[in-house]
């Protein structure tokens, strides 16, 4: 059964002459336990798809469902127990005046869950932090640690689906590796389904099994990550993206460029 399903998803902003359609008939299907990547450049609408699933936009048309349950335009509280999101910017996604403890406690209070202290300690350990971080403020943490906290906050409600919006693009390479490893481990251990948005083909082929390429609000190609690296992409735009990232990638020798 597919965990995330989007059928003929359309979304536009503005009215009349200023009408700007940002999503055109997007169809997506992500299986349970799968890790799916949405690739595209800025303005391609990849983040918009994520935000529709997260309930940030309410005027989409088409059909969306998570775990077989169709989404309403106004989402019930239970929805958020199933779907959580991790943001791109680790500096902006944590409340600057709340300690880590407050940030992690908040979702537990909202959903009326008990054994809060145990849950907070557990989740901190799961993301590779410990309880010495509990009473610190975000500005006392490094970028990588903040992103771990953001992941902990998303996972503390034990969701089935994690929406990842460029979770590592604001991080240094060495920290990115740590976070990608953590995400891979968590998916395996917690049986999570990932939908990840990124512009980095290296990251997407590392973490995802399947990839959809978006351009100007449309999905232009769907393929396996395996196929992506074996140059089996058929759409021109995908080939261009692959080529562009190959140009700077590890395996191309210097001579090829000159």
């Amino acid at each position: 059964m597919s965990m995330i399903q989007a059928h003929a998803l359309n979304l536009s902003f503005g009215l009349g002459a200023g009408l700007n359609q940002v999503l055109h008939d997007v169809n997506l299907s992500v299986e349970d336990g799968e890790s799916f990547g949405l690739v595209g450049e800025s303005g391609s609408g990849k983040t918009t798809v994520l935000r529709c699933l997260a309930g940030q936009y309410r005027h989409w048309s088409g059909a969306l469902s998570i775990g077989g349950v169709p989404l309403q335009h106004k989402l019930p509280k239970e929805h958020f127990r199933k779907v959580q999101m991790v943001f791109q910017d680790p500096y902006g996604s944590l409340h600057p005046r709340h300690t880590i403890d407050t940030a992690l406690r908040e979702p537990l209070i909202i959903h009326g869950l008990d054994e809060r202290d145990d849950r907070i300690n557990d989740i901190l350990l799961k993301v590779g932090l410990n309880d010495s971080f509990r009473y610190r403020y975000p500005h006392q943490l490094s970028g990588g640690q903040r992103q771990r906290v953001a992941i902990a906050r998303a996972l503390i409600l034990q969701p089935r689906v994690l929406l990842l919006d460029e979770p590592t693009s604001a991080l240094d390479v060495s920290v990115q590796a740590e976070i990608l490893n953590l995400l891979a481990d968590l998916r395996q251990r917690e049986k999570l389904t990932y939908l990840m948005v990124t512009h980095d083909l290296g990251v997407v082929s590392h973490l995802c099994d399947k990839v959809a390429v978006m351009q100007q609000g449309r999905i232009v190609e769907r393929l396996d990550s395996q196929a992506l690296s074996q140059d089996l992409a058929s759409h021109e735009y995908t080939r261009m993206l692959v080529q562009a990232s190959r140009d700077f990638s590890a395996e191309t020798p210097m001579a090829a460029r000159a």
């Binding site: 509280k77 929805h79 127990r81 944590l94 909202i110």
Partner: peptide, 8 residues
């Protein structure tokens, strides 16, 4: 947005 997504 993050707390909105927690259902607050």
């Amino acid at each position: 947005v993050a707390v909105e997504l927690q259902g607050a």
